[in-house]
Structures are given as structure tokens and as C-alpha cells.
């Protein structure tokens, strides 16, 4: 659950910025002849509603109804008393708490005479809510609105960019704090890292670790004891006011390996692809002089996902937008040792 700082700051996210986003979505809705738009949200899929309202439910779920005009409505199963708090941290949209959010949305759609309703990621929309809506509002037909939403969202505006940078700074600082810590136990290292991010105002923080990079396998959660190898890596994802970033750093105990890792860190820091068509080539050329790239991927916000894989070495991911910031994840071999890194990359001006 979200349990870090959740607060709205008008300087960070003015109402006017949210109103502009809403206007963009409505323009896209008109293109698709949608009478209304519905976005499902919970902590795992909060990015869509958060982009329009600045709010992610800390728990439970909700539906954001965007009518053709007027205020959006956030209907949530969170308890009645929480509505006042939600209003204080959600600068755009009215809040109604109800045990049956979909029934309320259906009622509003029926009252408005809506027929064509766009749903962000219809295939992923909870079937129970869809059933409630089409049963209670039989004139309504649901259509996938992912393309319309994507078109409206486009590249981040100046306010979203600042929030992403803040999240990124928290992720990088927390990793730096762990470097400077004296923790010898992996769990203590994760704790130090998370503490730093949350003290800095992180809304959420996911930390996983690869305790021994000489062993095969992915990043693990800190839910069991681990022993450090000679090389290890930490992977940190941080949310700040709904904006996410991810950072990965590899560590070595051996001085020679530290030097090799520092070279790779520098190469990653300098990574700045010219265009999406050359992403693969640029990843490989960036690390060509210091090692071999095993795998890489790029992540960006996509629909209701804060970070979705949009490009990858195996080519199975798609949707990379070269005009927007992205997270580049790299898995490489350097001087016989595995190294992993990730950072936020901003597009060239």
C-alpha cells in the first residue's frame, strides 16, 4: 500500500495543469465520439487516474468517470470518512464514496444518456465493474480507450517532468546513501536505502536486490536473509506524488572491479540516444568499449501503468516514445563480472 507522503502542493501541480490535461483527454474523446470516459485505478494501476487528478488511492480501488463536460467524478469503495481526506489531496474531480463504485458510474452514465463510453484498457478492466455498468445502463456500449488516452497524454508537461525528476533524485540519493552506509547485511542495506527515500518524501518505494551478481537470477525482495557476494546490485523504484522513477546500481568489494563498475556507471550516465530507431544500437555502442550487453529494456508510463516496458532487447515490447523521458535498464558483463544499471534518461533538447 502507499504509506509514504501523500499531499497536494499547488506549486508542484497547479489545478490549471490538470485542467489542461482534462481538456486534452476530452479532445481525444471527441475524436473517438466517446460520450464519457472511465478509468479504473488501484495501487497497481494508478497512473491513468493520477495523471488526470494527481491522486492514487492508497488502498482499495476506484473509478474515475470523465463526462463530456463538467467535473470528473471519482467513485471509490474507500470509507465515507476518507472522502474529505481524498478531496484534500486530489485537486481535480469530485469524490463520492460508495460500496459499489461501478453502480454509481452506471447511474451517472444513464442519467447523462451516454452510449459510447471509452474505457482505459478495456481488456484489463475488472469484469465485475464492466458487468455492473452494462447491466445498469443497458444503452451503454464499452470501447477500448487506450489509444485515445495515450494520444491525450503525450509527452509529460513541465509539472509532470518536475515530479519525475524529484522521484528520480530520491531514488538516486537513496542508493547513494546505501553506498555510504556501513551496513554489511543486505536487509540492513535495503532498510537504509528505503529510509532515505521515505525521509525525502517518497510516496512509495520498492527495493529489490541481487545479492550476488555471480549467481544467475533476478532481483529479489528483502523478505528473507541473503548473503552478499563480491558483487551485488540494488534496484530502487520510487514514487513522488504519483510520478515514478527507477534506478539500479551495482556494487563491488574488489577495487579493480569497482573501477570497472565506475566506468559502466559513467557510460550509463552519458547514455542519450538520438532517436527511438537507434535505441538498440546506441545501448550496445555505449557499452561496447567496456563490456558486453546481455539484455536491456526501456520503461515509460503507459496507460494505467506508471512504468511499463516499451522497448527491449528481444524486441517484444513496443511503444517507445523518443520525445518523453524513459528508464533505461541494462544488464552487461564487464571484465568477467555481471553489472546491472538503470537510470532516468531525458530526451535530447
Amino acid at each position: 500500500m502507499r504509506r509514504g507522503l501523500m499531499a497536494w502542493d499547488a506549486d508542484e501541480l497547479p489545478r490549471a495543469a490538470l485542467a489542461a490535461r482534462l481538456a486534452r483527454l476530452r479532445e481525444a474523446m471527441r475524436e473517438e465520439r466517446f460520450d464519457a470516459f472511465v478509468i479504473y485505478t488501484n495501487i497497481a494501476r494508478g497512473a491513468g487516474a493520477c495523471w488526470l487528478t494527481g491522486f492514487t488511492p492508497y488502498w482499495n480501488e476506484g473509478l474515475l468517470l470523465v463526462p463530456a463536460d463538467g467535473e470528473p467524478l471519482f467513485a471509490t469503495a474507500l470509507s465515507k470518512r476518507v472522502a474529505e481526506w481524498i478531496s484534500s489531496v486530489m485537486p481535480q474531480g469530485d469524490v463520492i464514496t460508495t460500496p459499489k463504485p461501478a453502480a454509481l458510474v452506471a447511474e451517472r452514465l444513464a442519467d447523462a444518456g451516454a452510449r459510447r463510453v471509452g474505457v482505459l484498457e478495456l481488456d484489463d478492466f475488472p469484469a465485475g465493474h464492466a458487468h455492473t455498468i452494462v447491466t445498469a445502463a443497458p444503452a451503454v456500449a464499452l470501447f477500448d480507450g487506450a489509444a485515445a488516452f495515450h494520444c491525450a497524454r503525450g509527452a509529460p508537461d513541465a509539472y509532470e517532468l518536475l515530479l519525475i525528476r524529484r522521484a528520480d533524485a530520491l531514488a538516486r540519493q537513496s542508493l547513494a546513501a546505501s553506498v555510504g552506509s556501513t551496513a554489511v547485511d543486505p536487509l540492513a542495506l535495503v532498510a537504509r536505502c528505503e529510509q532515505d527515500a521515505r525521509l525525502g518524501g517518497a510516496e512509495e518505494c520498492f527495493i529489490t536486490l541481487a545479492p550476488d551478481l555471480s549467481r544467475p537470477g533476478g532481483f529479489l525482495r528483502a523478505d528473507r536473509p541473503h548473503a552478499f557476494g563480491a558483487t551485488f546490485a540494488l534496484r530502487v523504484a520510487v514514487a513522488y506524488k504519483g510520478a515514478w522513477s527507477r534506478s539500479v546500481r551495482s556494487f563491488a568489494s574488489d577495487a579493480q572491479m569497482q573501477q570497472a563498475f565506475a566506468l559502466a556507471d559513467a557510460a550509463l550516465a552519458a547514455f542519450s540516444p538520438a532517436s527511438s530507431s537507434v535505441l538498440k544500437r546506441e545501448v550496445e555502442s555505449t557499452f561496447a568499449h567496456i563490456g558486453t550487453v546481455f539484455d536491456w529494456s526501456a520503461e515509460q508510463p503507459r496507460g494505467s501503468y506508471a512504468l511499463a516496458t516499451v522497448a527491449s532487447a528481444d524486441g517484444c515490447a513496443e511503444g517507445f516514445d523518443a520525445s518523453a523521458p524513459f528508464i533505461i535498464n541494462v544488464d552487461a558483463e564487464l571484465a568477467g563480472a555481471r553489472w546491472r544499471g538503470a537510470r532516468l534518461v531525458e530526451p535530447r533538447a
Binding site: 504509506r3 547485511d185 536487509l187 540492513a188 535495503v190 532498510a191 537504509r192 528505503e194 529510509q195 521515505r198 518505494c205 527495493i207 525482495r221 528483502a222 523478505d223 528473507r224 536473509p225
Partner: peptide, 10 residues
Amino acid sequence: EAFFRTKGVP
């Protein structure tokens, strides 16, 4: 949260 992470609470 830092305390819980040291105890393996995810």
C-alpha cells in the same frame, strides 16, 4: 519501514 525491512518484512 526501515525497521521492518531489517526484519525481512516486505
